[in-house]
């Protein structure tokens, strides 16, 4: 049975791999600056749509971590995101009008770009509303992390998605371009995460946080997955299976220790709940290009109309990575 399973997984990996190669035709290059990529650069890969307000801070945040090149796919923005990105000196930009859903929510495009430009490099796959936090990120650039991972012969680095939210209604504070969104969304749930194992992919399945608490209390199995493997040393044949939650070959999903120890891991601060969120979720419901026909967004739109506050008495205010480590949301592992 296990041999059959292994074969099925292998077949699945090859299918996704070929699919990514096929889907490259949907990408039309707007700016190709990939010549500037150096051997040891760490690449950020991002798929986005209509994010003009968030882009300035997003780029600044990752440049400050030491990212020298961004591979970005613009999925039919109409707010000038495409033009803005085309002007950035360290961004290679592709644009596509094809269906986000039929590219398996952008994953096929990511798989293709990582394969084409990222072989043997560290690939950080994040959305525009995700901010990667790792141990010592305030004193050590991301290159220190990848060098350490290389030395320890580790190929992937896990990070749990941590949903950040404001205190009060989302529409209370208007986000300004270039502003640190964590100034507004500075609260998170510290300890209501539910973990189970996904044996098929050898990964963990984590759910919880404010979204489970607020939107999926009655249907918890539908709550979004929070386990992610955003940072991967890309090898030939690697594919993301479902968003950045899981990869194949599945050894890359072993970012946790199941014998009592703690591996080093980070967090992805997920700053979704800004003022434009409600508007956006209504638009996404209409567009139905998201996971499960944007059922998630429908739940948001419904729940938020009645009670827009995600904050509760036990919410925790974000300070820094050390706080997250003490709370047990991330770990230094044996990196000291």
């Amino acid at each position: 049975m296990s041999i059959l399973d292994a074969y099925k997984r292998g077949a699945r990996r090859r299918r996704l791999y070929l699919r990514a190669i096929r889907k490259r035709r949907e990408l039309e290059c707007v700016r190709d600056r990939t010549q500037a990529i150096k051997t040891r650069d760490i690449l950020v890969v991002t798929v986005l749509r209509d994010e003009i307000k968030r882009l300035p801070f997003f780029l600044k945040y990752y440049r400050d971590l030491g990212i020298r090149h961004f591979l970005m796919v613009d999925n039919g923005s109409t707010d000038g995101s495409c033009e803005y990105l085309a002007e950035q000196p360290d961004v290679s930009l592709w644009s596509t009008g094809a269906s986000y859903r039929r590219a398996r929510f952008g994953v096929d495009w990511v798989n293709w770009l990582a394969r084409r430009y990222g072989l043997g490099k560290w690939i950080l796959t994040v959305d525009v509303d995700e901010f990667f936090i790792y141990p010592f990120c305030d004193t050590r650039p991301i290159r220190a992390l990848t060098d350490w991972l290389d030395a320890a012969e580790i190929r992937s680095f896990g990070a749990m998605m941590l949903d950040m939210y404001p205190k009060g209604a989302m529409t209370d504070v208007v986000y300004q371009p270039g502003q640190d969104p964590l100034e507004i969304c500075s609260w998170f749930d510290a300890g209501n995460y539910m973990i189970s194992r996904n044996w098929d992919y050898a990964s963990l399945w984590i759910q919880g946080g404010p979204r489970a608490r607020k939107f999926f209390a009655e249907t918890p199995y539908r709550a979004p997955a929070l386990n992610k493997v955003p940072l991967v040393k890309w090898g030939r044949g690697n594919v993301f299976v479902s968003s950045t939650h899981m990869l194949l070959p599945r050894g890359l999903n072993l970012v946790f220790d199941d014998r009592g120890g703690e591996k080093a891991c980070g967090c992805l601060l997920h700053v979704k709940f800004l003022d434009a969120f409600l508007e956006k979720s209504q638009a996404e419901v209409a567009r139905a290009e998201h996971y499960r026909g944007a059922a998630e967004y429908r739940a948001y739109a419904d729940a938020l109309r009645d009670d827009p506050d995600l904050w509760c008495k036990w919410s925790e205010k974000y300070i820094n990575w050390r706080q997250l480590e003490i709370l047990g949301l991330m770990s230094k592992g044996n990196w000291a």
């Binding site: 220790d257 199941d258 703690e262 891991c265 949301l329 230094k332 000291a336």
Partner: peptide, 28 residues
Amino acid sequence: IFTKATERRVRGRAGLYMASRFPPKDYE
């Protein structure tokens, strides 16, 4: 500091279940 790092990597914090530590229930 380094001894503690090794300890954390090998033993971890008892009773903590998180993204990088998930012992099976019979392990601890």
